[in-house]
Design a binder for these strands. Structure first.
Lengths: 203, 203, 203, 203
DNA sequence: TATGAATGAGAATTCATTCAT
DNA sequence: GATGAATGAATTCTCATTCAT
């Protein structure tokens, strides 16, 4: 079953709108106008707002989890796996900043209302990380660490970095903090990866 | 000028509601009921929803920034300063979980609409961190690092940790990830602090 | 029974407010602020909004009707009586422009809701005019004319003139209509009086 | 672009309601019920109350100014022009009594808040009158007179006459004023016209 | 499929009025 | 008499959703 052009157009517009304004703040009228489709068309293609939101999250979360899993599985060395994990997650997050915004809002709500299929994707990523950490420990490369904290360090930091892009660029440039502006995602990922791996490695 | 009991009661209820549902999802009728006050009383004390939101953020952000600044200033050693910075921020965040939720939502929106007084508090924390890092570099204890990334590692991780508390507790207990449930904020802060400091220290 | 200072202060403020915004458009909060009194004080002195409105109209309409009746009764000649009628009404109207505004609004509502005591004052003026016209006819000075139309010509013209003062002064000055701006009430009353008397006089 | 049935139905109902109760006194719920349409439909077709009011005034004022201008332009003699001016204004005003009520309320507010397009229509009528008067003076038929006063005599008198119709019919029938009841607009217009023209004519 | 119009259920805010002190 | 606080009943406006074509 090939999805229509309109179906996708609405999905894309909705992704942006939900990212910018959250579920409650996203208004169907605005979505229709932004997409250049009639309001009734949205309901023709997506049942209702809640379903549309689920569709958005599914379409957004699955590719990211897929990419991380796929990239990590190509590696065998725990250190390489972890580095790839962090950098792939960073890269795919940065490619679609809506993911970070939406995930942050969901976490702010305690994740309670997150659609099951979206939640599952985050669990895939977390379990993957856990496997990598345990592999490293089994090989006496990593010391023991709470995988959830590591997961939060990766996701929390990258989410903030990605979603703060407009915010950072509006900061006043002061002599005190001259590195604030021109940070890019690659160098951020690099720093996060080094920090985490460095702290995990047995000396 | 002492604020009324009612003023504060509304402020507290609103803090919770905004944290749970976000600005658009928080409903004034619900707030009135939750606080046991008349709807019109809210407007008597707080002008309108936007102003109430500002009042909430101001009351929420200032004490946290104050606490971090005060605690860090008591220390002189850069390592101790950084450790105190992270632990004080963690502790005060955990004491009022609404802060994490609200900050995450604001960051999800790019921080663009955040009331100036709230944004200033985050800047105070960031600039304080920057000072500590520079002090450590000047004393040849720390290597160079992007303070913004460090800031995001602290804030992003703690935010996620705090706001995911209900989420974590709803996770299925699996053999794979048995450490997920019973994490407390102190051990999380400890791990974050160690990780960051360890990666900063010149070997 | 001497009315308080506050009673009168509220009455004066209310007169202005009702004139500017009408009954429905006048807001008790604004009145309190404008008068520099507490909102509850208004209710202490004036029962409720409707009563306050009645008080305003009574205080406004009686002196005007009194003045017209008193001035006309001093004259004996019908022409002089009519001239005095028009000029006294004009002068007293111009002295308190609120009268014109409030009367116009009441007439716009069909006069149906006008408090009885205020309506009686307008009837006093109309009956006085009718007496003058009949006197003139009995003396074969005036031809027959509908007194209501004459009444409307006087009241309608003066009301418009008085209440349009700010409007006129905001009109663009054009070569076409250079007399529009600097008209005063005396010359207006003079022209109205001449017009009406001239058309009534038997040739 | 043909306006919907509903659009017009709302416009008509609103005209009546604004005429009866003024802007502030007109209640949108009442309007919806009166028109037999859903409340939200009003906003679908007319944006908000202020816009609806503008739409009402525009639809009300333009045809009247058009009619007066068109009728006067058919005449060449200044006396005929002036007579036509007064009678056409009277007739069209009487045909839609809402015009008089709304205009009176606007003038009561000083005309300051009147939508530009409505104000322009009144200026068209005033300027037309001025032209007629100047033509009469140029032909040595009329003596000099303030056109604004003449305008106010016409408009103020007719407004009062039209809007007082229900008021007049509620007056007690007294021997003193037996002509008050059964006045019709044509005879009123006739008397106004005669009065004004008579006073303008050079003897 | 697409769309202009319609609508019921809210949701924010206002306002006249009252109450306790 | 005066006042800060409180409140019930509106009142304007919004929004997700549906319907007829």
């Amino acid at each position: 079953m090939v999805k229509t052009n309109t179906f996708q157009k609405i999905l894309d517009g909705a992704t942006l709108l939900f990212a910018q304004h959250g579920y409650d703040g996203a208004i169907m009228d605005d979505l229709a106008e932004q997409c250049g489709v009639n309001k009734a068309s949205i309901y023709y293609h997506h049942k209702d707002k809640a379903t549309l939101y689920e569709n958005v999250l599914t379409a957004l979360f699955i590719p990211i989890a897929d990419a991380v899993v796929a990239a990590v599985e190509l590696e065998t060395d725990p250190v390489k796996k972890l580095d790839t994990h962090i950098k792939t997650f960073s890269k795919t997050s940065a490619e679609n900043p809506c993911f970070a915004s939406i995930l942050m809002r969901e976490m702010a709500s305690g994740g309670v209302n997150m659609p099951a299929r979206a939640r599952e994707q985050m669990q895939r990523i977390l379990f993957l990380l856990n496997q990598t950490l345990q592999l490293g420990q089994a090989q006496h490369i990593f010391q023991s660490a709470n995988p959830l904290i590591i997961h939060f360090m990766i996701v929390g930091t990258i989410n903030l970095f990605v979603s703060s892009t407009p915010f950072r660029q509006s900061l006043p440039i002061t002599g005190q903090c001259d590195q604030l502006q021109n940070s890019n995602i690659e160098s951020a990922a690099e720093q996060i990866s080094k920090t985490i791996i460095n702290s995990l490695l047995l000396k």
